[in-house]
């Protein structure tokens, strides 16, 4: 019959605001998803990476909205008014930055006049690293495999941004 009376502190102890933790984890993942090493690796679904880098900050914003609703709407139950506000602002900034980066990295020329499949690749001559002029027609006619002496089946032209 001797019911223990809960201590006042325990009675009013507020719950952890779980959405704060989840939002923070998603925000860290969002930042990590931009690491260049992910683009250097070779794995299926890599083409989705830019979209993932855009979606994760948006998800973290949603978590912080939930966290702040709890912290301000039920302050007797949830903590995290200050921390939630700081992280919430950071997540919005990260999302805004991610949108700008996403657009910037896709901002490429149309290249409408570039050679398409079935068209002739315009011949050209450029210097190699030793300063020796090399032409596309020459590359197509020069055997790579010296034992067979056969001209290559094809030449792969890779245009890149300079050093990367």
């Amino acid at each position: 019959m001797n019911q223990p009376i809960p201590a006042m502190g325990a009675m009013y102890q507020r719950r952890r605001n779980r959405a704060l933790f989840d939002g923070s984890v998603v925000m860290v993942l969002a930042i990590l998803s931009n690491f260049p090493v992910l683009y250097a690796l070779n794995f299926p679904g890599q083409g989705l990476l830019p979209w993932i880098s855009l979606a994760l900050p948006a998800i973290s914003v949603v978590f912080f909205i939930v966290a702040l609703k709890r912290a301000f709407g039920q302050p007797e139950m949830y903590r995290g008014k200050i921390l939630g506000s700081i992280l919430g602002v950071l997540s919005v900034l990260l999302f805004a930055g991610s949108i700008l980066l996403f657009q910037h990295l896709k901002d490429l020329p149309k290249s409408a006049a570039a050679p398409q499949v079935g068209q002739k690749a315009p011949d050209f001559t450029l210097n190699d690293t030793g300063g020796k002029p090399v032409s596309l027609s020459q590359l197509l006619a020069t055997p790579i495999d010296t034992t067979s002496g056969k001209a290559p089946k094809a030449v792969l032209l890779v245009f890149y941004r300079g050093y990367w």
Binding site: K153, V155, F159
Partner: peptide, 16 residues
């Protein structure tokens, strides 16, 4: 600069 692009050109000089 150049935009990234890759072309595979066969022995006849045609883009494949």
């Amino acid at each position: 600069i150049s935009r990234p692009a890759e072309f595979l050109v066969d022995a006849t000089g045609t883009v494949r």
